[in-house]
Design a protein around this nucleic acid. Structure first.
Length: 316
DNA sequence: CGAGTTTGACCGGCGC
DNA sequence: GCGCCGGTCAAACTCG
């Protein structure tokens, strides 16, 4: 997956409002933009010599160009989100097909002695943890073993920041720390502060290769809304603008379900004039950006991707 | 004083 | 069987 287009998109979005400025006077547009405007200007001069009309033509030309660029950016955003969803589904498929590669070490030692453990009940999700078959305990129970969602993210931190804190919107309670064999940096163990009702755990450890990078491994899925999102929800509810369906929060959990394709696909024909409105587009962009930034998994993955591009040798 | 963190001990899996 | 190692527990400690 090439994340460069994602970064480019965000950069373009940031710089876009400036390009909406009229081109007369000290324009800062690029060389090609000047040439486009200039050529249209020459063509227009054949028809009219009025300076006011020339300016109007320039503005119309610029408006068309910006609209075209907006379309491209919208398309890029949609593609980006589709890629994101596709990646997530691929990851789900992969983890379902290869649970033993990452999940087997997390087998709980108490599964045999006390199979009524509260935490195991949650972590193991819908697995049959009450099995009395000792054979099956020794080997991973193939595809339906552990469906606890395991995700791994890398977050770049300040070199001076020695704390193993990954800000992901949730509150965590540290319950252990260990120095592992392959990494001199200690690994910290966290449980969700909503435990035992929320069974999610995470392990945080600095990368061996780059100690500025903190690798966090999440096990399980939160069954509650992150505390940071509770505040966001309460504050956003007083806003007067209703949502455009660009993003929605799953009521069952913290996973943010992006539905970015709906406005474009479903309403493309009927509501196109409204979709071309700069206000609507700007709001869409803001909505999507806020939705993405509220998703800890996405922000963390994005940070990892960006840091991976900046330091390509660190993560492969 | 309660909640959260630290840290050494303990437990179970796994490889030899 | 033994030792190593990762993960967890829980008492002691810290902090607001």
């Amino acid at each position: 997956m090439d994340y460069s287009s994602w970064v480019d998109t965000s950069l373009d979005l940031n710089s876009n409002p400036r390009r909406l400025q009229p081109v007369h006077g000290n324009s800062t547009s690029s060389q090609t933009q000047k040439m486009e405007v200039h050529s249209s200007l020459i063509e227009f001069e054949r028809k009219s010599t009025s300076p006011a009309k020339q300016e109007t033509a320039e503005l119309v030309e610029e408006l068309n160009r910006v609209s075209e660029e907006n379309k491209k950016l919208t398309e890029m955003l949609r593609t980006m989100c589709e890629n994101y969803n596709a990646l997530r589904s691929q990851l789900m498929d992969y983890m379902n097909k290869n649970p033993e590669k990452e999940l087997s070490p997390s087998k709980k030692r108490k599964s045999e002695s006390s199979n009524n453990n509260d935490q195991n009940h949650g972590i193991m999700g819908n697995s049959e943890s009450s099995s009395t078959d000792e054979e099956s305990c020794k080997k991973p129970r193939s595809e339906e073993v552990v469906k606890a969602k395991i995700s791994r993210i890398a977050v770049r931190t300040e070199p001076s920041d020695t704390s193993l804190i990954v800000k992901d919107g949730y509150q965590w309670r540290k319950y252990g720390q260990k120095v592992t064999r392959d990494n001199p940096c200690p690994r910290a163990y966290f449980k969700c502060s909503f435990a035992p009702s929320c069974p999610v755990k995470k392990k945080v450890q600095r990368s061996v290769e780059d100690q500025c990078v903190v690798v966090a491994t999440y096990e399980g899925e939160h069954n509650h809304i992150p505390p940071s999102q509770m505040e966001a929800n309460s504050s956003s509810s007083r806003g007067g603008i209703s949502t455009l369906g660009a993003a929605s929060l799953s009521p069952a959990g913290p996973t943010i379900t992006l539905d970015l394709t709906k406005p474009n696909h479903g309403d493309d024909e009927t509501k196109k004039p409204r979709m071309d409105s700069p206000e609507v587009k700007q709001y869409l962009v803001e909505q999507m950006a806020s939705s993405l930034t509220r998703d800890p998994n996405f922000t963390a993955a994005l940070a990892a991707a960006i840091s991976g591009r900046i330091f390509p040798t660190k993560f492969k």
